[in-house]
Each structure stands twice: as C-alpha cells, then as structure tokens.
Design a protein around this nucleic acid. Structure first.
Lengths: 266, 266
DNA sequence: ATGTATGGTGAACGCTGTTCATCAACGCCT
DNA sequence: AGGCGTTGATGAACAGCGTTCACCATACAT
C-alpha cells in the first residue's frame, strides 16, 4: 500500500521487480486463514486455500506454522487475545458473569464457524491461563465455595461454546440448503427458519409429542439471544444458590463476602 | 453362526464356495464403524477402514449409506436407540434429571470419541423427537415455566455433550503422548494425569495466577465423575429456582405442582 | 565478488470421500 | 432346464487433503 509510487531508477537495482514482497509471518497467515474461514466455512478451510489467499505455495506455510492443528490453535488464541474477564466487583458479579458470557458468544460470532475452530483445539493452552485465572477470580468474588468454582467454569464455558457451536451448525445447514441466495439478510433468514420450524413443530401429532407442540410457540418466539441469555441466567442462579452469603436465587444480591483480595492487575 | 455345519453335498451346488456371504446391511456397517472407532479413534475413522473391517470394497458401502455424514449420524442415532428419559415423577424430578444426565454421559463413554461423533452431526433429527419430547416433559413436571423449559434443554444437553467432548479430547491427547503404553488401566492413567496437572498448577507463579494455584488442590482432587455431577447440580439448582412452586434451591423439594397430566406412554 | 543462510517453490507421497462403468451371482419366468 | 433381468459388490478413477523434501533464488555478510 505504501509502495505504489513508481520506483526511482537507482532503487530499481535494489528492489526486485514486481510487487514488493511482504514477508510471510504467522500473523499474516492467521489473518489469511480468517479470511478463508469467513468466505468458505470451516469444512472447506484448508492449508491450500490459505496459501492461495496469500498467493504463496502451500509448503511455505509450514516454515511458520507446524501444521493445520497449530494454525487452528493460533486462530483460537488470537480470538481470545486482549479479552479478559472483568476485575471482580463482588456487588455485581452476576451481571459481570452475564456480560462475560455474552461477549464470549459475540467473539465466537466474529468469524464464521469460529465455534467449531474453538472446539477443534485442545481446551488447555498456557496462553489462556491468565484468562482462566481471572474468570475463576470472578466466581470467587461471588462468594462461591472453592469446590464449586471449578465446576462453574466447566458449566459456563461448555454452555457458551456449545451454544455457539449449535448456532454454527444451523448456519452451515442454512448455507447448504439455501445455496447462494444472498438476497436476504442473515436476520431475515433466521426469522424465516424459525417460522418454518414453528410450523413444523405445531403440525406434529400432539398425542405423540405433547410437550413439543405445546412449547413450539413459546420457545421459538424467542430469538437466539434471548435463549442464550436465559441459559446463562439459569447457570448463574444455580451458582448463586451455592454462594456462601445468603441471597441465593431470587432478586439482586445485596452484598457478598470474601472479595478474595485480588489486586486489579498483577 | 447357524451355518457352521459342513454343507451337505447337494447343498454344495446351491451355496457358493468359501465363507457364507452375509449380506451387507446398514446395521452391519454401523457395527463395523463402531469397531473401527473404538480401535483407531475418531480422527482416523474412514470409510475405507470401515470397508476393510467388513472385508468389502469401499464403494459397496455407498449402496447402503449416503456418505460418511450419514454413517456418523446413524451411529449417533444408534447410541440413543432404546434410551428414553424416565416418565416424569414430579416428586423426584431433580434426581431424575441427575440420573438422566449421568446415563447420557455414560452412553457417550460406551464408545471411544463418541462425543465427537455426536458433535459432528446436525443436532435435530426426527428420530430424536420422542426423546426430546420426554425430556421436556420431565422439566415441565418439575413445575418449570414454559419459557424456561426450552433453555433448560439447551443448558443440560450442552453441558453433557461438552463435558464428554472435553473428556474425549483429553483422552486422545493421552493416546498421542503415551503412544502404546497399555500397561496402565485407564483409571490409573487419569489419576497420573491429574497428579501431573496438579503439580503443574501448584508450581505456577502465585502472584500471576492466584486463583489457579489456590484452587489447584481442591479442583483436581475431584474425579471427573464428581466434577460432572457438580456441574449438573449447578444446573438443576438454577432450574429449580424458576420452579413455580416454592422450594427453590436449598434442600430436597417437597412437592411440585403442575404434573402436566401426561400419560406414561403415548 | 563470493559465499552463505533464510525462506519460498514445485513436485511428490499417502491418505481421504465419492462416483462410475463393469461384472458376477441370484431368483424368476418361460 | 435355460435364458434373462435385477441386485449389489467391485476396482479404478477423480479431486482434494495435510505434509515432506530436494531444489533454488534472493539478500545479506564477508
């Protein structure tokens, strides 16, 4: 972008002809991988496609990245980069958890099929340790007993990832059946799919599926965002019921003990 | 099994020589796929391996199964076959949910990497509708308001699948690093891995990861089963806090209204 | 100007899912 | 009994995948 000017004659001798060669780096590879992912989806994301995106031979990638697994993990890590759970405020820990979960899902929505990339990799990497530690700190600030805190992380992260994963599945299903009809916004498309599903459920034989037909209207009225928030709220209420102060489930908590005296930034 | 007797001479003319040819069926293919899965794991499960397991050409499979995706879905469905949520007992719905989740995980553990097969397929298939309907019935029997019931299914199934999925990931990691050391039982192996992890966490710099080191002992003392049960309990408590009778989180519930008058078997 | 190291190239290997023309065996009908 | 049609397995092929390796061109240091 900065080399578009015609090269001066004496520079000709120093610069090689053709477009200026930007060096290949891990970051550029990851960036290209995201571009390919957004364009073709997880299933067709391949080393060759990434190389093509960069105008480079496949084998060149392997000088910077150990393999496809590592590339996927790099994407996963880059997604988390710069995102940290908030510094715990014991008065507001429930809202903080809600918001944490919401932006977690939002991050997974930043790129197509990102939830599937996240599921691919090994769940534990050293780079994620600060993140995990702060999340645990958030739960401890809520007054949860230590033996609950670990399970809290399990439940919450499983839900966020799993929910986004299912959304990703619906999305690719939509792509498969819809072909290339770009005439609708994604929102309209979701809406149409919800209506189709609602009709399908409501036309089910009520004697065989009494609960499905009874719930078809209520459940499918909700947007995905509402369903997600509700799920998180269920989890938070369950957690709150273990909190060592009182104020279990109902109403906003008033105060929580054990702020676990952690400084804001280590 | 019934054709092992030496063939009578006049039968020789009718039966073709060599081993009696059992016809290829979907069920036999799925069975072979499970055998391959258990032996080599999800990553190396391929159509060719399944065909080899049956002593058959790859292309023969495609006469009975539409493709690999369908085969995986058949495996997924077969896993659920004959498993139904219990008929709801409003007095005991919380224990029923616990038990339901437990046997769900157990089913996913019946075959290696089964959780990954489950994640692969599309989450909704008509064959699973009775199962889902009964699960929803269980939640409704607990007195949960309708708008919660759908989210309840989300949270619970996401946790069960996600938890088993992570276990599967740890398992394949163990296989990769361990190579072929069959000298330990899986239990000892898990134990050893837990100890390694606990040591790793406890040796982390406490000023950077105060919560991780503080929790390293407590969390890792628990077996996977305990962590799973605890997660389910968190979810159940969260659900119970929405129940329309009283008795929210603490203590065993005494009675629940709205049995939703559903007959045991349609 | 020569040498050397860094890093991209292209071809190859072995694997994958899937398709297709071929062909053998079986039951049925005359 | 003999021919025929159908069913269903076969093997070869195609396109694509992840990964490796000998080669080579460029850029810098001597």
């Amino acid at each position: 972008m900065s080399d578009e000017l015609p090269a001066l004659p004496w520079e000709r001798a120093r610069r090689r002809p053709g477009p200026a060669r930007v060096p290949l780096t891990r970051d550029r590879i990851v960036e290209a991988a995201f571009a390919v992912l957004d364009r073709v989806g997880y299933e067709k994301l391949s080393m060759r496609q990434v190389a093509a995106e960069l105008g480079v031979a496949v084998s060149a990638l392997y000088a910077h990245v150990n393999g496809k697994d590592e590339l996927l993990e790099l994407m996963y890590l880059q997604m988390y980069e710069g995102w940290q759970p908030p510094v715990p405020d014991p008065e507001r820990w429930q809202e903080q958890v809600q918001e944490y979960a919401r932006t977690g899902r939002a991050k997974l929505h930043e790129h197509r099929d990102m939830a599937r990339v996240a599921m691919t990799g090994f769940p534990f990497s050293p780079e994620a340790l600060p993140h995990i530690d702060r999340l645990l700190g958030l739960f401890r600030a809520g007054g949860l007993p230590d033996r609950i805190v670990g399970a809290a992380g399990d439940v919450l992260s499983t839900f966020v990832n799993g929910f986004a994963f299912e959304e990703s599945m619906w999305e690719t299903r939509r792509h498969e059946s819809n072909g290339d009809t770009h005439d609708q916004s994604p929102e309209e498309n979701w809406q149409e799919m919800r209506e189709t599903l609602e009709r399908y459920f409501s036309e089910l034989p009520p004697e065989r599926f009494p609960n499905l037909v009874a719930l078809s209207g209520i459940v499918l009225d909700n947007t995905n965002d509402d369903r997600f928030d509700l799920g998180v709220e269920i989890i938070i209420r369950g957690l709150a019921s273990f909190a060592e102060d009182a104020s279990p489930a109902a109403g906003p908590s008033s105060a929580a003990p054990l702020p676990s005296g952690e400084p804001g930034d280590a």
